[in-house]
């Protein structure tokens, strides 16, 4: 961390004037250094060829530091993963901060460092950015926005309309870890042992699958907010297909499972970060699974269900003890329904 004569960020740091420059010059540029960023122009000059994916996401998370990561790497991984879900190789990101005055510089710095490492790991560059500071009470410590671009892999053909009856649905790993990690720190809940967020970049894993299986991968999606249930319900509704899931096949960390149980939460609605769901042709499903399980991000991968012709638009889960349940989207908190 660079030496500075202030230890919290104030309104002046977002004015675009001297203070802004001192904050940024003191290390941001240094830390995230690359040729394009170094030009320090109003915008970045990029070379892109062919079909390109473009995605954006804003990150607000409380607390900003949590077991397994912080808001910085979340912001990089989030956009990197969204690009990867398009079948793209993430290349360049923009990075914008909205900082609430009073944020300790130390915390800002830690976030930046996390961003740097996340970028290196994912193989992306921050090429442009922005910083604003808002009055106390008008934000929640720090909001981060990232946008990103990357060329679509030539073998990729990912579209909701490619999904067809018989497709297998593969999940890349344990569900509900991120949401439960956030919740445990936010609410101060101590479970048996610490639950860590699963935040990570999935682009290498996914591009390897695309390289191997190409068009047989029909759809990729990351079940972040709203969890696996919400994402699958959205897909079923928009593509008018039916989805059958099997509860017993859901991989879950034992600690996370018991924390969900304890709180009466359905893990299918809990947010994930380093997780993806793939709809693949039945014929390659087992091979995809094997390939995935060899990857560090897919060791717990599992087939969790399939696409069916029955009950279009509906997601039905067969529970571990038999009986089928209708999966619907949750508009808000999980409210009790039992009378």
């Amino acid at each position: 961390m660079p030496k500075l004569d202030f230890d919290v960020i104030t309104l002046g740091h977002g004015s675009g004037g001297v203070l802004t420059n001192r904050l940024l010059d003191s290390g941001v540029f240094d830390l995230l250094k690359n040729d394009i960023l170094d030009e320090r122009h109003d915008g970045a000059f990029l070379e892109l060829h062919g079909k390109t994916a473009f995605s954006t996401d804003s990150f607000l998370v409380s607390p900003i530091f949590f077991p397994g990561g912080n808001i910085g790497e979340l912001a990089v991984n989030g956009t990197v993963n969204d690009l990867a879900m398009c079948g793209a190789t993430p290349k360049y990101l923009s990075l914008s901060f909205i900082i609430e005055e009073g944020l300790p510089v130390k915390e800002f710095w830690d976030i930046l460092v996390a961003i740097k490492f996340a970028c290196e790991k994912a193989g992306v560059q921050i090429v442009t950015g922005d910083t604003k500071v808002v009055e106390k009470g008008k934000g929640d410590k720090i909001f981060v926005n990232t946008s990103g671009v990357g060329p679509i892999h030539p073998k990729a053909n990912i579209r909701v309309k490619n999904i067809s009856v018989g497709d297998k649905i593969i999940i890349s790993g344990n569900v509900a870890s991120h949401g439960m990690a956030i919740m445990s720190v936010r609410e101060g809940l101590e479970f048996g042992s610490e639950i860590k967020s699963d935040t990570t970049n999935l682009n290498h894993t996914i591009l390897r699958l695309i390289e191997l299986f190409g068009e047989s991968i029909h759809l990729l999606t990351d079940p972040t907010r709203g969890g696996v249930a919400t994402v699958l319900k959205e897909i079923a509704q928009s593509s008018e297909i039916g989805i059958d899931l099997f509860q017993r096949d859901f991989p879950m960390d034992e600690q996370v499972a018991s924390a969900c149980e304890l709180l009466g939460l359905d893990p299918l609605y809990v947010a994930n970060e380093g997780l993806f769901i793939a709809f693949v042709s039945e014929s390659v499903a087992d091979a995809v699974l094997t390939a995935l399980q060899e990857d560090e991000n897919g060791q717990n991968a599992r087939i969790i269900g399939s696409v069916v012709a029955e009950h279009p638009k509906q997601v039905i889960m067969e529970s571990a003890i038999g009986g089928k349940r209708v999966i619907s989207m949750l508009p808000g908190e999980q409210l009790p329904r039992i009378c």
């Binding site: 149980e261 304890l262 709180l263 009466g264 939460l265 999980q334 409210l335 009790p336 329904r337 039992i338």
Partner: peptide
Amino acid sequence: WLAADKMA
């Protein structure tokens, strides 16, 4: 009210 449907 605690723990959603579990309370019931």
